[in-house]
Amino acid sequence: MESMNVIVCVKQIPDPATPGALGADNTLKRDGKLILDESDSYGVEMALQLVDAAGGGEVSLVSMAPNGEVSGMRTALAMGAAKGMLVSDPALQGSDALTTAKVLAAAINKLGGADLIIAATESSDGYTGTVPEQIAEVLGLPSVTFAKKVVITGGTLNVNRQTEAGYDEVTCPLPAVISVTAGVVEPRYPSFKGIMAAKNKPLETVTASDLGVTPVGWAGAGQSIVSVTQAEARAAGEIIEDDGEGYAKIVAFLENLKVI
């Protein structure tokens, strides 16, 4: 391809260094400054590399946040994305994964679609891990998950798809939606010039109703958060005394985790 347009779905989340609190409805408070979810920095980097490799085109962003916060999107623009669309609406508060997918899909359509849509496998705050596939379904596009390597050849998407045992080689036609795993590429640091340029890049804010998506938020959610429980404290690790056969126990331990 001589030119390729990629849309990356990015989530802006509270800074994990200063974790936020839960509201009365058991959702994370998102009223302060939001940063680019680190999981999404991989998708942005991959999109920039794919556009570079194609020799033309641009990277656009779509995001959804209850407040009008754009700090996280500015970070992605500073990395090199060309433009963005934020869907921001108090009515979005409480949206479930499917509503989120409908809203993002509508934003993608509003931007005119793309050759490829990239999302992270899962966000670092919600971890539902279902939005990318739902976006594909809403848009009627093929979906490839857990992409660890992506190459475009002659309009075809070639993906190494991470599995427990290794990876599958998957091909599919474009346009398509892929979810990328963390660590697949080394996200660049925004340059000083990039940060300055980001200030003047187009960043459009629209509401859910502008996009014709209703109902959203709690009204549209097919789920509710009944209760939240503190995660169990991590148990102490197992100490293996080496009696000369210690390696066997370690191998068995790792095999059990399916990491070897």
Partner: peptide
């Protein structure tokens, strides 16, 4: 400016 803050965040992360 916001750009100063954004730049500080990048250098901090980098460092």
């Amino acid at each position: 400016t916001e750009e100063h803050d954004a730049f500080r965040a990048v250098v901090r992360d980098f460092a």
